[in-house]
Design a protein around this nucleic acid. Sequence first.
RNA 1: GGCGACGUGGCCGAGUGGCCAGGCAAGGGUCUGCAAAACCCUCUACCCGGGUUCGAUUCCCGGCGUCGCCUCCA
Length: 463
Amino acid sequence: MRLYNTLGREFAELRTRDEGKIGMYVCGATVQSAPHLGHGRSAVVFDVIRRYLEWLGFEVTYVRNVTDVDDKIIAAALDEGVSTDTIVERAYTAFDEAHRRLGVREPTVEPWATHHIDEMLELIGQLLDTGHAYAVGGDVYFSIRSYPAYGRLSRHDPSDLRSGARVDPDDRKKDPLDFALWKAAKPGEPSWDAPWGAGRPGWHIECSAMARKYLGVGFDIHAGGHDLIFPHHENEIAQSEAATGEPFANYWLHNGMMNLEGEKMSKSTGHVIDLLEALDIHRPTAVRLVYLRTHYRKPLDFSEGGLFDAEAALDRLWGFRRRTPEPVEDAPDEEMISRFQTAMDEDFDVAGGLGVLFDLVREGNRRLDDTEDAGALVAAYDEIVGVLGLGEETSDLEDLGLKIAEIAAKYGVPSGSIGDLLETRDRARSERNWAASDGIRDDLGSIGIVVEDAPDGSRWHRG
RNA sequence: GGCGACGUGGCCGAGUGGCCAGGCAAGGGUCUGCAAAACCCUCUACCCGGGUUCGAUUCCCGGCGUCGCCUCCA
């Protein structure tokens, strides 16, 4: 398969370091505040990439870090008069909840920055020893002049950057572009002991240290948001490669930003939609589908309308699957699978893959309408939907139990189960008792259960 | 100023040098006690101007427009 490598800005055939295995590092959350829709996109998009690679047969080690020490966290704690732990815990819980509801699979490893201070100290030590870093009054900076390839990923020329008005010069730095590997401890801030003085790590060093620990040198895929290309990923590369003299990661994948009314969603500007709130209002899978309909590298403009659109599309998918009882024994339809793979093999063209899925659904529905066998198509559906994580959530009816019992009582159905209600309704229908049959359907409809009649019997699902 | 992305039918959104994306919405039809679903049909687009080509939405050049990064940010 081919993928687009930000490093070099070109499509490249995927060649793994170790045969059949893929090491993948995704820059996860800075657990500083509640996640917004943009965070969800990144999590979902790389979740699908990971699922697809596994579906191809690779053994994927998927590492997604948690940044639990940084300026913003400290600022938030100070602001609210609580500990940084409180901020971190609250935000992490929210991210975790959002991931779960979006169907994002758990990473193989989820390393926290503060649990890897030793690894960072070791890396910083190496950089100091080899002259790639220098300590000034408790701070340690990476010297970008010691790493000639600086700017290769983001295609920035250091001299252009230097002349940029936004770089704030600091007399203690040898070069205005040098960045902090270690920040000297300040009163009231979390800090750890280090040979060059107590302090806390800079932002970039954690990813270098943790990626090296869990994936080794020259691992396969490093991913994250487009906004991380510079400076975060550029700096990761510089410090990692300066320390080891070896390539850091082979393929760099970056997801496009999420826009709101044409403008980038951003925590810092408050121009955001809270992810958990969105998931309360809409079916999580519909939110997931919104993320997946646009190619992962493109900007995605969020709109309420798009979400309703996705809900309708989902109904179409699920409506097909509901027509066939659960497990299917057949082998998946080869043509559909192969078309899906062809799309996905070209830089994860999920939108193209979805096109195949909808074609499959139309053909499957057609066959079922004509009472032909659709087993192979259903099996292919399950396979594709599994890769994309778009399966219908199995919903229990616990929350509706009381209401269902009420309706059952109203129609004299003793058990209070949906199945018995529908049986009673079937009897009413065969007796042409439309008042009762429509009444049951309407009453169930009013509590969110949709009843549909088909030639081979009635089906129900949550609306 | 530097680096970069994008501009497709009512909306969303893939993709391709010559032939079909797909979804949603809309209209018509089939089926049906009604409803819903499903199926069939219709709606056939590719920012503008040049160029290359037998042929360009797709390649090249120029322009216009939108957006992103260059500062913490998925």
